[in-house]
């Protein structure tokens, strides 16, 4: 594992995914934020990753056909 002391940008890159997933612990998050506030190289890449994720999420949305919804509703247990 890299550390912020050895190679801050490499460490920041390592934390990119869990940072955006909100899965870092407080200490790691504070360290990453401190580095991001100083480093535009990493900041740009973090922002890109955020945009990319939003873009991916929106790009792949395919709505369910209304007929399928009706078929699912028809699977309900009859009341008697």
């Amino acid at each position: 594992m890299t550390s912020f002391a050895d190679d801050p940008c490499a460490k920041c890159e390592e934390l990119l995914q869990p940072f955006l997933d909100r899965e870092l612990n407080d200490a790691e998050r504070v360290e990453a934020e401190a580095h991001l506030s100083l480093c535009s190289y990493c900041r740009k890449r973090y922002r890109f990753e955020e945009h990319l994720r939003r873009f991916v999420r929106q790009a792949v949305v395919e709505e369910m056909a209304p007929e399928l919804k009706a078929r699912l509703a028809a699977l309900r247990t009859p009341l008697f």
Binding site: E13, E14, L16, Q17, K44, R45, R47, F48, E49, H51, L52, F55, A59
Partner: peptide, 25 residues
């Protein structure tokens, strides 16, 4: 993890900002 951004940035001459880079997809 930065490589997609790096590739997209390299391939465009006038270093765009992060949002415009995504728009290339």
């Amino acid at each position: 993890d930065y490589f997609l951004y790096n590739r997209l940035e390299e391939s465009s001459p006038d270093a765009p900002d992060e949002e415009r880079v995504v728009e290339r997809l």
